[in-house]
């Protein structure tokens, strides 16, 4: 083992290999939590008329679990192609907000690094990047790749494995698959509980998204609920914070 890996350089920056592994350690739990969905996606895709190759291609190119599930579900119901594409877009629309917010953290990446980083910008990737920035450690491209690598590689592999062995999952409900994603996202929400006005934001987003879910329907409850939470944050922000003196 090269002992220099664990030493800081003269500039106080940790070596890039250390940063990669710091990111990798953050990516591993996300990889574990997303595994059931990656496998389930592969299995359901085959059920809905995809080949294994098409399922793998979708996981590799879209890389967004919920939107992929919606895509294969609609495909199985003979919905027009443009509507399937639009639904994928609608489910992923929340990423516009992540994108706007994370630009402050990764704006210093080189152009090609930036393109790749935005491609890899999933919910947990965004959450980890915000937490890293909050902790005061540098958000480098190598660290960002360290987080994304285990998530992306396993996500693509799981589509393949799920496609090959899909019929082994006989009863997703008994295995609680429908609750795993909410539990996982609850963990991400709780991770930000020390931020300003977390309580009011969560309550506003939660209540409004439930109302929108019951009235307008999915996936619009995400964008509508999120905007309600953001609006509350802007309204209740302390004046000195709003003037940038925090």
């Amino acid at each position: 083992m090269d002992e220099q890996i664990y030493q800081r350089t003269a500039t106080g920056e940790t070596s890039s290999r250390t940063q990669f592994w710091e990111g990798f350690v953050k990516g591993l739990p996300i990889m574990v939590a997303s595994a059931p969905f990656g496998l389930l996606f592969g299995a359901l895709a085959i059920d809905n008329g995809f080949t294994v190759g098409e399922a793998v291609f979708m996981s590799a190119s879209i890389f967004g679990g919920a939107s992929q599930m919606v895509g294969i579900e609609l495909f199985g119901h003979n919905v027009p192609a443009w509507l399937i594409v639009f639904s994928i877009f609608a489910v992923n629309f929340r990423h516009v907000l992540y994108s706007a917010a994370v630009g402050r953290r990764i704006g210093h990446f080189k152009p090609l690094q930036g393109l790749l980083s935005y491609f890899l910008l999933t919910d947990p990737q965004y959450a980890e990047t915000e937490k890293r920035a909050e902790s005061g450690k540098p958000v480098t491209f190598i660290w960002y790749l360290g987080v994304a690598t285990p998530i992306y590689v396993m996500w693509v592999l799981e589509a393949w494995i799920g496609g090959l062995f899909g019929n082994l999952i006989s009863d997703p409900h008994a295995l609680g698959i429908d609750m795993l994603l909410p539990i996982y996202f609850l963990g991400l929400v709780m991770g930000f509980r020390k931020r300003d006005n977390w309580g009011p934001i969560v309550i506003a987003s939660g209540v409004v998204s439930i109302i929108a879910y019951k009235t307008i329907g999915s996936p619009w409850h995400v964008s509508i609920g999120a905007l309600a939470g953001i609006l509350v944050a802007v309204i209740v922000a302390k004046p000195e914070k709003a003037q940038g003196k925090d």
């Binding site: 929340r94 992540y98 959450a127 929400v189 506003a204 999120a226 939470g229 509350v232």
Partner: peptide, 9 residues
């Protein structure tokens, strides 16, 4: 506010 607002939904 984006993390808490979006993830909550």
């Amino acid at each position: 506010a984006v993390p808490a607002a979006v993830l909550t939904t």
